[in-house]
């Protein structure tokens, strides 16, 4: 198989020029997304270039402590972004969400890197960092949707929670409708994506591997495993986030602290 064609600077710039299409759409329909989009693209580019430089060194060093530190930084950034975008207050959620994300990642990484891929050295940078990154990134997105739905639902429908708390005798029963709604809302998009994967969409990781020279059969196996890991990691992280957060936002009477949402 031929090596992947390199992209020189000129062609990278030409590649950026395709953004003119969404920018024209925003301008024509007077949608105020131009500035946000340009900032997002600029941030993405700078971050990815920095990561590329950084990963070069990390891959060369291949040191477990540095790799773990890198993943811990990703967890910290992921959690603070989740809290901000889910409109929650940092002081109530920082600890439970870090605990949830850390526990989920340890379990999913240990399972996939140690048991499924049978790596002798699970902190091998070229597996540990990108796979952890993919699980973290997706888990963050599901948590933003899920936690916002759960806590906003509880605050808005407090009457329902109290109705069930008294009538069903169990705190768990009172929370189940809110938990169910939140998990469904968060995970349904991925279930939908998995349903049509390969038919109407070729996932990025698989495409990247094929472009990088891997045989399609290998790329597909990795893609299946990563999709399963992302789904399992995302659902575990959201569930643990809810369970751990509940310890901080309800008092001994089972009353919800209504000040958990950012205005």
């Amino acid at each position: 198989m031929k090596a992947i064609a390199n992209i020189d600077t000129i062609h990278l710039i030409i590649g950026y020029s395709i953004l003119i299409i969404p920018l024209i759409i925003f301008w024509y329909f007077k949608i105020k997304l131009t500035k946000t989009t340009l900032i997002a693209v600029a941030r993405m580019s700078v971050q990815l270039f920095l990561v590329a430089i950084y990963l070069e060194y990390i891959f060369k060093l291949n040191n477990a402590y540095i790799n773990i530190l890198w993943v811990l930084v990703m967890i910290g950034v992921g959690v603070s972004t989740t809290i901000k975008r889910a409109s929650l207050k940092l002081k109530y959620f920082i600890l439970p969400l870090i605990l949830a994300l850390f526990s989920s990642l340890v379990l999913i990484d240990a399972f996939f890197l140690g048991i499924v891929l049978k790596l002798e050295y699970v902190f091998e940078a070229r597996y540990f960092i990108p796979i952890s990154g993919m699980i973290l990134g997706n888990a963050m997105n599901y948590n933003i949707v899920g936690l916002n739905s759960y806590f906003e639902g509880l605050v808005k429908e407090e009457n329902l929670y109290y109705f069930l708390l008294v009538n069903t005798n169990e705190n768990k029963n009172a929370l189940l409708p809110f938990i169910g709604k939140s998990i469904k809302k968060a995970l349904s998009p991925l279930i939908g994506t998995m349903t049509v994967m390969g038919l109407i969409a070729l996932p990025g990781m698989m495409t990247g591997q094929i472009l990088g020279g891997s045989p399609p059969a290998t790329a597909i196996k990795y893609q299946i495993l990563i999709a399963v890991a992302i789904f399992s990691g995302g659902s575990l992280n959201l569930t643990l986030s809810i369970i751990f957060s509940n310890l901080f936002v309800f008092d001994k009477y089972g009353r919800l602290n209504r000040r958990i949402l950012r205005k």
Partner: peptide, 22 residues
């Protein structure tokens, strides 16, 4: 009180006003 509340709630049934049930 906070220690007995679960035991107390087992004795109570509650119908709030205008509840929006899912």
């Amino acid at each position: 009180n906070d220690e007995n509340i679960n035991e107390i709630r087992k004795k109570l049934a509650w119908i709030p006003q205008n509840i929006n049930l899912p």
